[in-house]
């Protein structure tokens, strides 16, 4: 049977450069996200909208996870690492379903279990009536 094995590069310099690049990129992304939040806080939220901040900081986190997956965890598009990649994609998909699904359902429940005055507001302003 053909062995499906990938070794770390023999030239150790290359391996080291991978870890070093991953580290530098991670530090830059961490500090970048921190500075954005810091700027937002010191401008009392006038610099940009809260939603924009959440979006950008979220993208920074996703980028950093990708950087670490490639440079530290040695994930690649190599044909021989196919099953590892499938396992990761499956786990990420399930994680997203759990997190986004929970938020969605709970928000919906909150919306439908609002106190009396909100229900009144909904029926008057939004035209939503309750039996």
């Amino acid at each position: 049977m053909k062995q499906k094995i990938t070794y770390l590069p023999e030239r150790n310099h290359n391996v080291m450069m991978r870890y070093l690049s991953g580290f530098i990129l991670s530090v830059a992304l961490t500090i970048g996200a921190f500075l954005l939040v810091y700027a937002y806080r010191s401008s009392d939220g006038e610099l940009f909208a809260r939603g924009v901040l959440f979006g950008v900081v979220g993208i920074f986190a996703v980028m950093q996870v990708a950087v670490q997956a490639v440079y530290f965890l040695h994930l690649s598009s190599d044909e021989r690492t196919k099953w590892t990649r499938y396992a990761v994609i499956f786990a990420v998909a399930v994680a997203l379903i759990i997190i986004v699904g929970s938020l969605w359902i709970m928000q919906n429940l909150n919306y439908n279990m609002m106190p009396e005055h909100t229900t009144k507001y909904m029926s008057h302003e939004e035209g939503i009536t309750r039996p």
Partner: peptide, 23 residues
Amino acid sequence: MSQSATAVVAHSKETFGFWLYLM
């Protein structure tokens, strides 16, 4: 990929098992 006697294995059946635990 060169087959080395001493280099660390980055991916194999065994590392796949460990990846399943991580996931």
